[in-house]
Design a protein around this nucleic acid. Structure first.
Lengths: 202, 202
DNA sequence: CATTTAATGAGACTTTTGTCTCATTTCAAT
DNA sequence: ATTGAAATGAGACAAAAGTCTCATTAAATG
Protein backbone atom coordinates (compact mmCIF):
# COMPACT_ATOMS: atom_id res chain seq x y z
CA UNK A 1 0.00 0.00 0.00
CA UNK A 2 3.02 2.22 0.37
CA UNK A 3 4.20 4.17 -2.59
CA UNK A 4 7.65 5.62 -3.03
CA UNK A 5 9.84 6.61 -5.90
CA UNK A 6 10.04 3.39 -7.83
CA UNK A 7 13.50 1.98 -8.13
CA UNK A 8 15.46 -0.66 -6.31
CA UNK A 9 13.16 -1.33 -3.35
CA UNK A 10 15.85 -0.83 -0.76
CA UNK A 11 17.90 1.93 -2.30
CA UNK A 12 18.11 4.97 -0.08
CA UNK A 13 15.62 3.41 2.24
CA UNK A 14 16.25 5.84 5.05
CA UNK A 15 15.87 8.91 2.96
CA UNK A 16 12.63 7.56 1.61
CA UNK A 17 11.26 6.65 4.98
CA UNK A 18 12.07 10.07 6.31
CA UNK A 19 10.36 11.88 3.46
CA UNK A 20 7.31 9.70 3.77
CA UNK A 21 7.11 10.23 7.49
CA UNK A 22 7.51 13.98 7.10
CA UNK A 23 4.59 14.08 4.72
CA UNK A 24 2.33 12.07 6.98
CA UNK A 25 3.22 14.11 10.02
CA UNK A 26 2.66 17.35 8.19
CA UNK A 27 -0.75 16.12 7.07
CA UNK A 28 -1.68 15.08 10.59
CA UNK A 29 -0.57 18.41 11.97
CA UNK A 30 -2.75 20.31 9.52
CA UNK A 31 -5.72 17.98 9.92
CA UNK A 32 -5.88 18.57 13.63
CA UNK A 33 -6.83 22.12 12.82
CA UNK A 34 -10.05 20.89 11.32
CA UNK A 35 -9.49 21.89 7.74
CA UNK A 36 -8.86 19.59 4.85
CA UNK A 37 -5.41 20.69 3.88
CA UNK A 38 -4.59 20.94 0.21
CA UNK A 39 -1.71 18.89 -1.03
CA UNK A 40 0.17 22.08 -1.68
CA UNK A 41 -0.12 23.01 1.98
CA UNK A 42 0.93 19.60 3.14
CA UNK A 43 3.94 19.58 0.88
CA UNK A 44 4.85 23.04 2.05
CA UNK A 45 4.48 22.12 5.70
CA UNK A 46 6.67 19.08 5.08
CA UNK A 47 9.26 21.19 3.25
CA UNK A 48 8.93 19.03 0.21
CA UNK A 49 7.88 19.81 -3.33
CA UNK A 50 4.47 19.01 -4.69
CA UNK A 51 5.92 16.60 -7.22
CA UNK A 52 7.66 14.67 -4.49
CA UNK A 53 4.49 14.35 -2.48
CA UNK A 54 2.85 12.76 -5.50
CA UNK A 55 5.75 10.36 -5.76
CA UNK A 56 4.86 8.98 -2.35
CA UNK A 57 1.08 9.10 -2.47
CA UNK A 58 -1.18 8.63 -5.46
CA UNK A 59 -3.46 11.43 -4.30
CA UNK A 60 -4.34 13.68 -1.40
CA UNK A 61 -6.85 11.25 -0.01
CA UNK A 62 -4.34 8.47 0.43
CA UNK A 63 -2.20 10.88 2.37
CA UNK A 64 -5.04 12.01 4.58
CA UNK A 65 -6.22 8.47 5.18
CA UNK A 66 -2.83 7.32 6.30
CA UNK A 67 -2.00 10.37 8.33
CA UNK A 68 -0.94 9.16 11.74
CA UNK A 69 -3.64 10.52 13.93
CA UNK A 70 -2.77 10.42 17.51
CA UNK A 71 -5.44 7.90 18.31
CA UNK A 72 -4.25 7.29 21.80
CA UNK A 73 -5.82 4.33 23.53
CA UNK A 74 -4.52 2.88 26.76
CA UNK A 75 -2.74 -0.38 26.12
CA UNK A 76 -4.40 -3.52 27.39
CA UNK A 77 -2.51 -3.50 30.60
CA UNK A 78 -3.55 0.01 31.57
CA UNK A 79 -7.03 -0.45 30.21
CA UNK A 80 -7.91 -3.28 32.55
CA UNK A 81 -5.68 -2.52 35.51
CA UNK A 82 -7.67 -2.94 38.65
CA UNK A 83 -10.71 -4.28 36.81
CA UNK A 84 -12.23 -7.49 38.09
CA UNK A 85 -11.21 -10.16 35.61
CA UNK A 86 -14.42 -11.99 36.31
CA UNK A 87 -16.66 -9.15 35.19
CA UNK A 88 -16.75 -8.83 31.41
CA UNK A 89 -19.36 -6.08 31.59
CA UNK A 90 -17.13 -3.86 33.66
CA UNK A 91 -14.22 -4.58 31.38
CA UNK A 92 -16.17 -3.82 28.23
CA UNK A 93 -17.35 -0.60 29.75
CA UNK A 94 -13.75 0.43 30.13
CA UNK A 95 -13.11 -0.35 26.51
CA UNK A 96 -16.11 1.67 25.52
CA UNK A 97 -15.07 4.61 27.61
CA UNK A 98 -11.56 4.57 26.21
CA UNK A 99 -12.82 4.50 22.65
CA UNK A 100 -15.49 7.06 23.30
CA UNK A 101 -13.00 9.49 24.80
CA UNK A 102 -10.49 8.93 22.05
CA UNK A 103 -13.14 9.45 19.40
CA UNK A 104 -14.32 12.67 20.98
CA UNK A 105 -10.76 13.94 21.02
CA UNK A 106 -10.34 13.19 17.37
CA UNK A 107 -13.76 13.61 15.95
CA UNK A 108 -12.78 15.83 13.07
CA UNK A 109 -9.88 13.85 11.68
CA UNK A 110 -11.79 10.62 12.21
CA UNK A 111 -14.71 11.94 10.22
CA UNK A 112 -12.34 13.04 7.53
CA UNK A 113 -10.67 9.68 7.38
CA UNK A 114 -13.98 7.90 7.26
CA UNK A 115 -15.16 10.21 4.50
CA UNK A 116 -12.09 9.64 2.41
CA UNK A 117 -12.26 5.89 2.85
CA UNK A 118 -15.93 5.85 1.89
CA UNK A 119 -15.25 7.83 -1.21
CA UNK A 120 -12.56 5.49 -2.38
CA UNK A 121 -14.62 2.41 -1.73
CA UNK A 122 -17.67 3.93 -3.33
CA UNK A 123 -15.55 4.50 -6.40
CA UNK A 124 -14.86 0.78 -6.43
CA UNK A 125 -11.30 1.03 -5.24
CA UNK A 126 -10.89 -2.37 -3.67
CA UNK A 127 -7.18 -2.06 -3.63
CA UNK A 128 -7.03 0.07 -0.56
CA UNK A 129 -6.05 -1.61 2.67
CA UNK A 130 -8.67 -2.99 4.98
CA UNK A 131 -9.63 -0.50 7.59
CA UNK A 132 -7.54 -0.68 10.62
CA UNK A 133 -9.44 -2.59 13.26
CA UNK A 134 -8.43 -1.62 16.72
CA UNK A 135 -11.64 -2.52 18.42
CA UNK A 136 -11.70 -6.28 17.92
CA UNK A 137 -8.47 -6.98 19.81
CA UNK A 138 -9.68 -4.82 22.68
CA UNK A 139 -13.05 -6.51 22.76
CA UNK A 140 -11.37 -9.89 22.79
CA UNK A 141 -9.12 -8.84 25.59
CA UNK A 142 -12.07 -7.62 27.61
CA UNK A 143 -13.92 -10.87 27.28
CA UNK A 144 -10.99 -13.27 27.44
CA UNK A 145 -10.94 -13.85 31.20
CA UNK A 146 -14.61 -14.76 31.13
CA UNK A 147 -14.57 -16.89 28.07
CA UNK A 148 -15.59 -19.95 30.02
CA UNK A 149 -18.98 -18.34 30.49
CA UNK A 150 -19.72 -18.45 26.77
CA UNK A 151 -19.87 -21.09 24.12
CA UNK A 152 -17.41 -20.62 21.32
CA UNK A 153 -20.08 -19.66 18.86
CA UNK A 154 -21.80 -17.20 21.10
CA UNK A 155 -18.56 -15.56 22.14
CA UNK A 156 -17.75 -15.01 18.52
CA UNK A 157 -21.15 -13.54 17.80
CA UNK A 158 -20.98 -11.36 20.87
CA UNK A 159 -17.63 -9.92 19.86
CA UNK A 160 -18.94 -9.01 16.46
CA UNK A 161 -22.10 -7.45 17.83
CA UNK A 162 -20.08 -5.40 20.29
CA UNK A 163 -18.07 -4.03 17.39
CA UNK A 164 -21.24 -2.24 16.34
CA UNK A 165 -21.38 -0.40 19.62
CA UNK A 166 -17.76 0.52 20.11
CA UNK A 167 -16.31 2.44 17.18
CA UNK A 168 -16.61 5.66 15.26
CA UNK A 169 -19.73 4.49 13.44
CA UNK A 170 -21.75 4.37 16.64
CA UNK A 171 -20.73 7.97 17.28
CA UNK A 172 -21.99 8.90 13.83
CA UNK A 173 -25.32 7.23 14.43
CA UNK A 174 -25.87 8.85 17.78
CA UNK A 175 -24.71 12.28 16.78
CA UNK A 176 -25.79 12.70 13.19
CA UNK A 177 -28.80 10.42 12.93
CA UNK A 178 -30.34 10.35 16.38
CA UNK A 179 -28.87 13.63 17.56
CA UNK A 180 -28.36 12.43 21.09
CA UNK A 181 -26.24 14.36 23.51
CA UNK A 182 -23.05 13.05 24.95
CA UNK A 183 -24.62 11.76 28.12
CA UNK A 184 -27.45 9.86 26.56
CA UNK A 185 -25.18 8.30 23.97
CA UNK A 186 -23.01 6.89 26.71
CA UNK A 187 -26.03 5.58 28.59
CA UNK A 188 -27.47 3.78 25.62
CA UNK A 189 -24.15 2.23 24.83
CA UNK A 190 -23.60 1.05 28.37
CA UNK A 191 -27.02 -0.51 28.43
CA UNK A 192 -26.51 -2.20 25.07
CA UNK A 193 -23.15 -3.60 26.09
CA UNK A 194 -24.60 -5.13 29.20
CA UNK A 195 -27.61 -6.48 27.36
CA UNK A 196 -25.51 -8.16 24.70
CA UNK A 197 -23.11 -9.73 27.15
CA UNK A 198 -25.89 -11.05 29.36
CA UNK A 199 -27.65 -12.50 26.37
CA UNK A 200 -24.54 -14.32 25.24
CA UNK A 201 -24.09 -16.07 28.52
CA UNK A 202 -25.53 -19.54 28.51
CA UNK B 1 -31.38 24.44 2.88
CA UNK B 2 -32.66 24.77 -0.63
CA UNK B 3 -30.92 27.18 -2.90
CA UNK B 4 -32.40 28.76 -5.98
CA UNK B 5 -31.88 31.89 -7.94
CA UNK B 6 -32.47 34.49 -5.31
CA UNK B 7 -35.38 36.77 -6.03
CA UNK B 8 -38.95 36.91 -4.93
CA UNK B 9 -39.35 33.58 -3.16
CA UNK B 10 -42.36 32.50 -5.15
CA UNK B 11 -41.59 34.00 -8.51
CA UNK B 12 -41.55 31.36 -11.25
CA UNK B 13 -41.84 28.72 -8.63
CA UNK B 14 -42.67 25.98 -11.09
CA UNK B 15 -39.80 26.66 -13.37
CA UNK B 16 -37.46 26.66 -10.44
CA UNK B 17 -38.79 23.46 -9.00
CA UNK B 18 -38.48 21.76 -12.35
CA UNK B 19 -34.88 22.81 -12.83
CA UNK B 20 -33.98 21.74 -9.35
CA UNK B 21 -35.64 18.39 -9.77
CA UNK B 22 -33.93 17.83 -13.13
CA UNK B 23 -30.57 18.40 -11.54
CA UNK B 24 -31.20 16.02 -8.67
CA UNK B 25 -32.53 13.33 -10.95
CA UNK B 26 -29.61 13.67 -13.30
CA UNK B 27 -27.23 13.34 -10.37
CA UNK B 28 -29.02 10.26 -9.09
CA UNK B 29 -28.97 8.67 -12.53
CA UNK B 30 -25.22 9.16 -12.84
CA UNK B 31 -24.50 8.08 -9.29
CA UNK B 32 -26.14 4.75 -9.81
CA UNK B 33 -23.39 3.96 -12.26
CA UNK B 34 -20.92 3.97 -9.42
CA UNK B 35 -18.84 6.94 -10.41
CA UNK B 36 -18.78 10.32 -8.77
CA UNK B 37 -20.10 12.48 -11.54
CA UNK B 38 -18.52 15.86 -12.07
CA UNK B 39 -20.80 18.84 -11.93
CA UNK B 40 -20.23 19.34 -15.62
CA UNK B 41 -21.60 15.88 -16.32
CA UNK B 42 -24.59 16.40 -14.09
CA UNK B 43 -25.42 19.72 -15.66
CA UNK B 44 -25.05 18.16 -19.10
CA UNK B 45 -27.26 15.22 -18.21
CA UNK B 46 -29.85 17.65 -16.86
CA UNK B 47 -29.60 19.78 -20.02
CA UNK B 48 -28.73 22.78 -17.95
CA UNK B 49 -25.71 25.02 -17.93
CA UNK B 50 -23.00 24.76 -15.34
CA UNK B 51 -23.73 28.24 -14.08
CA UNK B 52 -27.35 27.35 -13.49
CA UNK B 53 -26.43 24.28 -11.52
CA UNK B 54 -24.37 26.47 -9.22
CA UNK B 55 -27.35 28.75 -8.83
CA UNK B 56 -29.25 25.90 -7.24
CA UNK B 57 -26.54 24.17 -5.25
CA UNK B 58 -23.56 25.72 -3.54
CA UNK B 59 -21.31 22.86 -4.64
CA UNK B 60 -21.25 19.39 -6.12
CA UNK B 61 -21.45 17.73 -2.76
CA UNK B 62 -24.72 19.34 -1.83
CA UNK B 63 -26.12 18.04 -5.07
CA UNK B 64 -24.85 14.54 -4.52
CA UNK B 65 -26.05 14.49 -0.94
CA UNK B 66 -29.54 15.50 -1.89
CA UNK B 67 -29.77 13.32 -4.96
CA UNK B 68 -32.96 11.34 -4.63
CA UNK B 69 -31.65 7.83 -4.39
CA UNK B 70 -34.22 5.23 -4.92
CA UNK B 71 -34.06 4.09 -1.35
CA UNK B 72 -37.11 1.92 -1.62
CA UNK B 73 -38.42 0.58 1.64
CA UNK B 74 -41.77 -1.08 2.00
CA UNK B 75 -44.18 1.20 3.76
CA UNK B 76 -45.23 0.23 7.25
CA UNK B 77 -48.32 -1.55 6.08
CA UNK B 78 -46.45 -3.84 3.68
CA UNK B 79 -43.53 -4.23 6.04
CA UNK B 80 -45.57 -5.82 8.81
CA UNK B 81 -48.37 -7.43 6.84
CA UNK B 82 -48.94 -10.89 8.20
CA UNK B 83 -46.50 -10.42 11.06
CA UNK B 84 -47.69 -11.29 14.52
CA UNK B 85 -48.29 -7.99 16.26
CA UNK B 86 -47.35 -9.58 19.53
CA UNK B 87 -43.84 -10.52 18.45
CA UNK B 88 -41.56 -7.50 18.35
CA UNK B 89 -38.56 -9.66 17.53
CA UNK B 90 -40.19 -10.94 14.36
CA UNK B 91 -41.26 -7.44 13.42
CA UNK B 92 -37.81 -5.97 13.98
CA UNK B 93 -36.31 -8.71 11.90
CA UNK B 94 -38.49 -7.61 9.04
CA UNK B 95 -37.32 -4.07 9.45
CA UNK B 96 -33.74 -5.24 9.48
CA UNK B 97 -34.20 -7.30 6.37
CA UNK B 98 -35.85 -4.47 4.50
CA UNK B 99 -33.05 -2.07 5.38
CA UNK B 100 -30.36 -4.59 4.72
CA UNK B 101 -31.74 -5.35 1.27
CA UNK B 102 -32.19 -1.71 0.44
CA UNK B 103 -28.68 -0.91 1.57
CA UNK B 104 -27.20 -3.68 -0.51
CA UNK B 105 -29.04 -2.39 -3.55
CA UNK B 106 -27.68 1.08 -3.02
CA UNK B 107 -24.35 0.48 -1.44
CA UNK B 108 -22.36 2.74 -3.72
CA UNK B 109 -24.54 5.83 -3.61
CA UNK B 110 -25.06 5.39 0.11
CA UNK B 111 -21.33 5.28 0.70
CA UNK B 112 -20.95 8.35 -1.44
CA UNK B 113 -23.61 10.20 0.44
CA UNK B 114 -22.13 9.22 3.76
CA UNK B 115 -18.70 10.33 2.59
CA UNK B 116 -19.92 13.71 1.45
CA UNK B 117 -21.82 14.29 4.65
CA UNK B 118 -18.80 13.34 6.73
CA UNK B 119 -16.60 15.71 4.84
CA UNK B 120 -18.93 18.60 5.31
CA UNK B 121 -19.36 17.93 8.99
CA UNK B 122 -15.65 17.42 9.49
CA UNK B 123 -15.15 20.82 7.96
CA UNK B 124 -17.37 22.20 10.67
CA UNK B 125 -20.35 22.83 8.44
CA UNK B 126 -23.10 22.70 10.98
CA UNK B 127 -25.53 24.34 8.67
CA UNK B 128 -26.33 21.26 6.70
CA UNK B 129 -29.58 19.50 7.45
CA UNK B 130 -29.68 16.70 9.95
CA UNK B 131 -29.26 13.36 8.31
CA UNK B 132 -32.47 11.90 7.21
CA UNK B 133 -33.55 9.34 9.74
CA UNK B 134 -35.70 6.66 8.26
CA UNK B 135 -34.86 3.99 10.73
CA UNK B 136 -36.34 5.44 13.90
CA UNK B 137 -39.93 5.58 12.65
CA UNK B 138 -39.66 2.02 11.41
CA UNK B 139 -38.20 0.81 14.67
CA UNK B 140 -40.96 2.55 16.55
CA UNK B 141 -43.58 0.98 14.35
CA UNK B 142 -42.08 -2.44 14.89
CA UNK B 143 -42.18 -2.13 18.64
CA UNK B 144 -45.41 -0.19 19.02
CA UNK B 145 -47.81 -3.12 19.35
CA UNK B 146 -45.68 -4.57 22.13
CA UNK B 147 -45.05 -1.38 23.98
CA UNK B 148 -46.88 -2.66 27.03
CA UNK B 149 -44.05 -5.11 27.55
CA UNK B 150 -41.54 -2.33 28.17
CA UNK B 151 -41.22 0.55 30.54
CA UNK B 152 -41.13 3.92 28.86
CA UNK B 153 -37.48 4.43 29.64
CA UNK B 154 -36.39 1.04 28.47
CA UNK B 155 -38.40 1.26 25.28
CA UNK B 156 -36.69 4.51 24.50
CA UNK B 157 -33.26 3.09 25.18
CA UNK B 158 -34.05 0.00 23.17
CA UNK B 159 -35.09 2.01 20.16
CA UNK B 160 -31.89 3.96 20.23
CA UNK B 161 -29.74 0.88 20.64
CA UNK B 162 -31.50 -0.79 17.73
CA UNK B 163 -30.62 2.20 15.58
CA UNK B 164 -27.02 1.07 15.88
CA UNK B 165 -27.85 -2.26 14.31
CA UNK B 166 -30.15 -1.20 11.52
CA UNK B 167 -28.63 1.38 9.22
CA UNK B 168 -25.80 1.95 6.79
CA UNK B 169 -23.24 2.30 9.53
CA UNK B 170 -23.68 -1.28 10.64
CA UNK B 171 -23.01 -2.34 7.07
CA UNK B 172 -19.81 -0.34 7.11
CA UNK B 173 -18.66 -1.95 10.31
CA UNK B 174 -19.38 -5.47 9.15
CA UNK B 175 -17.96 -5.06 5.70
CA UNK B 176 -15.03 -2.70 6.08
CA UNK B 177 -13.93 -3.26 9.63
CA UNK B 178 -14.84 -6.86 10.44
CA UNK B 179 -14.91 -8.06 6.84
CA UNK B 180 -17.78 -10.43 7.43
CA UNK B 181 -19.65 -11.99 4.58
CA UNK B 182 -23.25 -11.28 3.86
CA UNK B 183 -24.55 -14.30 5.67
CA UNK B 184 -22.66 -13.83 8.88
CA UNK B 185 -23.51 -10.15 9.03
CA UNK B 186 -27.18 -11.01 8.92
CA UNK B 187 -26.79 -13.63 11.60
CA UNK B 188 -25.02 -11.34 13.99
CA UNK B 189 -27.60 -8.65 13.48
CA UNK B 190 -30.49 -11.01 14.05
CA UNK B 191 -28.92 -12.24 17.21
CA UNK B 192 -28.22 -8.74 18.46
CA UNK B 193 -31.74 -7.60 17.73
CA UNK B 194 -33.21 -10.45 19.68
CA UNK B 195 -30.78 -9.97 22.55
CA UNK B 196 -31.54 -6.28 22.87
CA UNK B 197 -35.28 -6.73 22.78
CA UNK B 198 -35.24 -9.51 25.35
CA UNK B 199 -33.07 -7.45 27.62
CA UNK B 200 -35.44 -4.52 27.45
CA UNK B 201 -38.41 -6.56 28.54
CA UNK B 202 -39.11 -6.36 32.17
C1' DC C 1 37.29 12.07 -3.82
C1' DA C 2 34.91 10.98 -7.82
C1' DT C 3 31.23 8.82 -9.98
C1' DT C 4 26.90 6.93 -10.36
C1' DT C 5 22.17 7.06 -9.90
C1' DA C 6 18.20 7.69 -7.08
C1' DA C 7 15.58 11.36 -5.01
C1' DT C 8 14.16 15.85 -5.42
C1' DG C 9 12.62 20.51 -7.23
C1' DA C 10 10.77 23.48 -10.68
C1' DG C 11 7.53 24.26 -13.64
C1' DA C 12 4.37 23.37 -17.76
C1' DC C 13 -0.04 21.43 -18.79
C1' DT C 14 -4.94 19.45 -18.18
C1' DT C 15 -9.18 18.88 -15.66
C1' DT C 16 -12.46 20.12 -12.28
C1' DT C 17 -14.41 23.14 -8.89
C1' DG C 18 -16.26 27.42 -7.83
C1' DT C 19 -17.23 32.57 -8.81
C1' DC C 20 -18.59 36.34 -11.69
C1' DT C 21 -20.38 39.07 -15.50
C1' DC C 22 -23.12 40.06 -19.25
C1' DA C 23 -26.03 38.88 -23.02
C1' DT C 24 -30.40 36.06 -24.10
C1' DT C 25 -34.34 33.76 -23.40
C1' DT C 26 -38.73 33.03 -21.34
C1' DC C 27 -42.39 33.42 -18.04
C1' DA C 28 -46.38 35.97 -16.56
C1' DA C 29 -49.01 39.96 -15.78
C1' DT C 30 -51.11 43.64 -17.86
C1' DA D 1 -49.26 41.22 -27.85
C1' DT D 2 -46.07 43.74 -25.18
C1' DT D 3 -43.04 44.42 -21.67
C1' DG D 4 -40.46 44.02 -17.42
C1' DA D 5 -38.43 40.94 -14.39
C1' DA D 6 -36.42 36.59 -13.58
C1' DA D 7 -34.08 32.47 -15.13
C1' DT D 8 -30.75 30.85 -18.07
C1' DG D 9 -26.48 30.28 -21.07
C1' DA D 10 -21.91 31.39 -22.49
C1' DG D 11 -17.69 32.14 -21.24
C1' DA D 12 -13.73 34.34 -18.61
C1' DC D 13 -11.13 33.65 -14.47
C1' DA D 14 -8.72 31.65 -10.23
C1' DA D 15 -7.51 27.74 -7.23
C1' DA D 16 -6.55 22.99 -6.62
C1' DA D 17 -5.73 18.18 -8.17
C1' DG D 18 -3.04 15.31 -10.90
C1' DT D 19 0.47 14.09 -14.55
C1' DC D 20 4.89 14.84 -16.96
C1' DT D 21 9.48 16.21 -18.13
C1' DC D 22 13.90 17.80 -17.32
C1' DA D 23 17.45 19.83 -14.61
C1' DT D 24 19.69 19.63 -9.75
C1' DT D 25 21.04 17.75 -5.62
C1' DA D 26 22.79 14.43 -2.68
C1' DA D 27 23.55 9.54 -0.96
C1' DA D 28 26.30 5.48 -1.38
C1' DT D 29 30.13 2.93 -3.16
C1' DG D 30 34.52 1.99 -4.74
Amino acid sequence: MTAAPKSAPKARANQKRRTRKDLLQAAARLMKEGRTPSLEEIAGEALVSRATAYRYFPNVEALLIEAPLDLALPDEEAMFRGAPAADPVARMERVDRAFHDMILDNETPLRLMLAKTMERRAAGDDGLPARQNRRTPMIEAALAPAKAEFSRASLDRLQKALALVIGTEAMIVFKDVLQLDEKEAREVKRWAIRALIEAARK
